[in-house]
């Protein structure tokens, strides 16, 4: 038991070290807060201009919310891995931490980033867009939380792939979209249900799909990450 426990503790420390390293780098440069915050503001104002005061159906508005979140994730979540390659620190990290610790550290960072992005987007969206009414708050909060976790989970593993492929920008949404489509279709449908007013029981199927999606993506990512990370 003893060595296992010690390994577990070392693994936890490595994971949190990877996370804290990115966290401090973020606090130093404030890239995500500035650039991604502005990204969200810009996209929402484009939506506002294109709506031009016309009322839009809840279906369209639910879809738009996730369009903003999808592209915000696509512009922000590849950074953790691309940064390592750009700075040339990937090699050092490979030697110093086990692959799974790197994966979960980065995932944790993207989860926090995703939570921040989602919070900002949802608040701005609710304040600025008039037609966006939520009738079942509990369901909506649940959907948004699970949705942003799923978004971060799938984006993290694709980010690892594209950082290795040395193609930063264009390929990321191309690779992520088919993977994220099941998630996006579910959350858009669930957001529409929440804005029309629904009970937990009616949205239960959506939650089952979201939770199993997250579990499946995180497990396969964990199993495959080593192949991507070590050459």
């Amino acid at each position: 038991m003893q060595p296992d426990e010690r390994y577990g503790r070392r693994w936890l420390r490595a994971t949190s070290a990877v996370f804290l390293k990115d966290w401090h780098a973020e606090l130093r440069t404030r890239y995500a807060i500035n650039a991604l915050g502005m990204f969200v503001v810009t996209t929402i104002s484009i939506i506002l201009f294109s709506l031009g005061g016309e009322p839009a159906s809840p279906e369209v508005l639910a879809g738009m919310l996730w369009v903003v979140l999808f592209f915000a994730a696509m512009s922000g979540m590849s950074r953790t891995f691309v940064m390592e390659e750009e700075r040339g620190t990937a090699m050092t990290l490979q030697l110093q931490a086990p692959a799974s610790a790197v994966y979960f550290g980065k995932l944790l960072f993207n989860l926090v980033l995703g939570a921040g992005l989602t919070l900002l987007t949802v608040v701005l969206y609710a304040v600025l867009i008039e037609g966006f009414v939520i009738r079942s708050y509990g369901v909506f909060i649940g959907v948004v939380t699970l949705g942003s976790i799923g978004l971060a989970a799938a984006s993290t593993i694709i980010a690892a792939i594209i950082a290795r492929a040395n193609t930063k920008g264009t390929l990321y949404p191309v690779l992520s979209f088919p993977i994220l489509l099941p998630l996006l279709m579910t959350v858009i449908n669930a957001t529409r249900l929440a804005s029309e007013g629904t009970s937990w029981a009616d949205a239960g199927g959506e939650f089952q799909i979201l939770i199993s999606y997250i579990v499946v993506v995180v497990t396969t990512s964990y199993l495959l990450f080593e192949y991507i990370w070590k050459d």
């Binding site: 799938a154 593993i157 694709i158 792939i161 290795r164 492929a165 690779l175 088919p178 993977i179 099941p182 999606y213 499946v216 993506v217 396969t220 990512s221 495959l224 192949y227 991507i228 050459d231």
Partner: peptide, 14 residues
């Protein structure tokens, strides 16, 4: 390696 990994991830989400 990368394309193999990608096809596996795609296959589990579809």
């Amino acid at each position: 390696t990368l394309s193999s990994v990608y096809s596996i991830i795609a296959a589990v989400t579809v």
